[in-house]
Design a protein around this nucleic acid. Structure first.
Length: 566
RNA sequence: UGGCGAGUGGCCUAAUGGUAAGGCACCUGACUCUGGAUCAGGGGAUUGAAGGUUCGAGUCCUUCCUCGCCAGCCA
């Protein structure tokens, strides 16, 4: 018995309240939910919301959640997707234990139930073509017309259904339809198709079948077979609920599941429709389903988004029936929040500018002790080599600094993190006036980063010894779409693609400690953001993906054009 | 002119007839060897509209408006 109404985070929602009430009032001994993907594509962040809801409820109320593939349409489904989906759900942090199911496991039972409906006059074989059925269906405002085959004898329908199964008829020649109400305002009740002929091999049942149940006929009955108590789906299925209930009530099913609908996730600056995602991949706008810019779970994982961050995000957006659009910032905040706690800090210089410390002994190397994670003392420290010639970030120097620019400038003193204070003495330029080098001096008294005389600096920069830094490629990512609502106001979503969603930087430098970081392990490049090694990395050619930038108030000031304001 | 659903600060979500709460975002200040993090504070809502019931309405009733979904042998 469990009468809690809230999730561990203290939040609840209308579905959890229904579950809690059903348990409290004894309608069910335990809650059983299910996540029912069709294996025809990759899972994305929107599915994550559903996964977190279904598995989350099972976990919180001490019930169970099944992973069930809704594999009723062999022409679109593939084993590859089944494998990828299982991996993604596991990665997200959920476990279905023994409860892995396939709608195709129930084909025989479903067929028996189809016969049951026919025998009871609740279903019939229709010889109309797809076009004719459409014509008979009517429109949103006009009722449909009954098929001429609607009242044929049950025995005849039964015989035809058997012969459909036996493969006697070609695709599309006949269907099995429920006999409900051709004049219903709900089009799903206008004698919906239950079975269609598809001479197509199925990833799991092979060529055992040439007729396949539709979603409507398979889903609720699969729920009933598995003892699902709460069948949770998205809003677009609300219209199907009367049909869901009609089938359950007219069939000798072993349990009585109920369907509940919630609003699917929408996110700004991205798109979550399978069709658009597919086009992004097929038209080469991204490099694949796992491109770090994709909102797919495999893409987010490659990008370096931790599963915990995605779960936190799902929890933060809540579950309701109001279809809204969540700002990506909420997702990014959730991800930064876990990365800030967990990611090891490292130095990297993406856009290098050489600094020579003129008064530092040539050939000398000092090991500076750097903290691995200020949020987690147990992460310890590491040595970072310091020498006379260093790389710093080009953005950390300005020859003519505006008022609010605190970093290095001619004559200015700043701190090199964990090392010394340095002062810029001279700016060296090439023939074109490009700054190629900074000549600086350091104060030996400031070793470790503090001045004995108590003087302060306004900025602390990250740096790397030119002699020790490793070379790396770094891929910078930004929103795939520059518009918050891609394709709004009549535009094609693809017009809103962000041309700068990926910027590849070569000849970046990373600190030696980064040499052997496992793929996908997130680190923070101090002052820059969170990054993780990409699978494209080679032993001597590391590639890093930028997961997210750090919050950057300087960048914000620049964007607002306020950097000169007093 | 059909059916179903939804409208609460910029965004998301709560308040289950008792006097609008939280997260994100934004702004200020403190602190800081990351312009990060953290901490403290702040602005911002005539709850889609108009009526009605009630001592009292975001919540109940009526009418209206707006938005979303549905006419696959997809899910």
């Amino acid at each position: 018995m469990n009468d809690q109404t809230t999730s561990p985070s203290g939040r609840s929602d209308f579905i959890r309240e229904i579950v809690a009430a059903d348990l409290r009032e004894g309608r069910h001994e335990a809650v059983v939910t299910r996540f029912p993907p069709e294996p025809n594509g990759y899972l994305h962040i929107g599915h994550a919301k559903s996964i977190c809801l279904n598995f989350g409820i099972a976990r919180e109320f001490d019930g169970r959640c099944h992973l069930r593939f809704d594999d009723t349409n062999p022409v679109k489904e593939e084993q590859e997707y089944i494998d990828a989906i299982e991996a993604d759900v596991r990665w997200l942090g959920f476990d279905w234990g023994e409860h892995l199911y396939f709608a195709s496991d129930y084909f025989e039972q479903l067929y028996d139930w189809a016969c049951h409906l026919v025998k009871n006059g609740k279903a019939y074989v229709d010889d109309l073509s797809a076009d004719e059925i459409r014509e008979h269906r009517g429109t949103l405002t006009e009722p449909g017309r009954e098929s001429p085959w609607r009242d044929r004898p049950a025995e005849e329908s039964l015989d035809l259904l058997e012969r459909m199964r036996a493969g006697e008829f070609p695709d599309g020649s006949r269907v099995l339809r429920a006999r409900i109400d051709m004049s219903s305002g709900n089009i799903n009740l206008r004698d919906p198709v239950l079975y269609r002929i598809l001479h197509s091999a199925h990833p799991r049942t092979g060529d055992a079948w040439c007729i396949y149940p539709t979603y409507d006929f398979a889903h609720g009955q699969s729920d009933a077979i598995e003892g699902i108590t709460h069948s949770i789906c998205t809003l677009e299925f609300q219209d199907h609920r009367p049909l869901y209930d009609w089938l359950i009530e007219n069939l000798p099913v072993p349990s009585r599941p109920r369907q509940y609908e919630f609003a699917r996730l929408n996110l700004t600056h991205t798109v979550l429709s399978k069709r658009t995602l597919m086009r992004l991949v097929n038209d080469g706008h991204v490099r694949g389903w796992d491109d770090p810019r994709m909102p797919t779970l495999t893409g987010l994982r490659r990008r370096g988004f931790p599963a915990e961050g995605i779960r936190d995000f799902a929890n933060a957006v809540g579950v309701a029936k109001n279809e809204g659009v969540v700002e990506v910032g909420v997702l990014e905040h959730a991800v930064r929040d876990v990365l800030n706690r967990q990611a090891l800090r490292r130095f990297a210089v993406l856009n290098p500018l050489k600094v020579v410390i003129e008064n530092y002994p040539e050939g000398q190397v000092e090991e500076m002790e750097a903290v691995n994670n200020p949020e987690d003392p147990s992460a310890g420290t590491r040595p970072v080599p310091f020498t006379r010639e260093l790389w710093i970030e080009r953005d950390d120097f300005m020859e003519e600094p505006p008022r609010k620019f605190f970093r290095l400038a001619p004559g200015r003193e700043v701190r090199l993190r964990y090392a010394y204070f340095i002062t810029c003495r001279e700016v060296v330029k090439d023939g074109e006036g490009e700054i190629v080098e900074l000549k600086c001096t350091y104060d030996p008294e400031t070793r470790g980063g503090d001045a004995p005389d108590g003087r302060r600096v306004k900025a602390t920069l990250h740096w790397l010894s030119t002699a020790h830094a490793l070379n790396a490629e770094v891929r910078l990512y930004d929103h795939l779409f520059r518009e918050p609502y891609p394709g709004s106001d009549g535009r094609d979503a693809f017009e809103d693609l962000n041309p700068e969603s990926e910027t590849v930087l070569h000849d970046c430098f990373i600190e030696p400690a980064l040499a052997e970081l496992p793929t996908g392990e997130a680190v923070q490049f101090e002052r820059l953001g969170y990054f993780c090694p990409d699978p494209d990395s080679a032993p001597d050619a590391p590639v890093f993906n930028r997961t997210l930038t750090l919050r950057d108030t300087w960048a914000k000031l620049q964007a607002q054009g306020k950097q000169d304001k007093a």
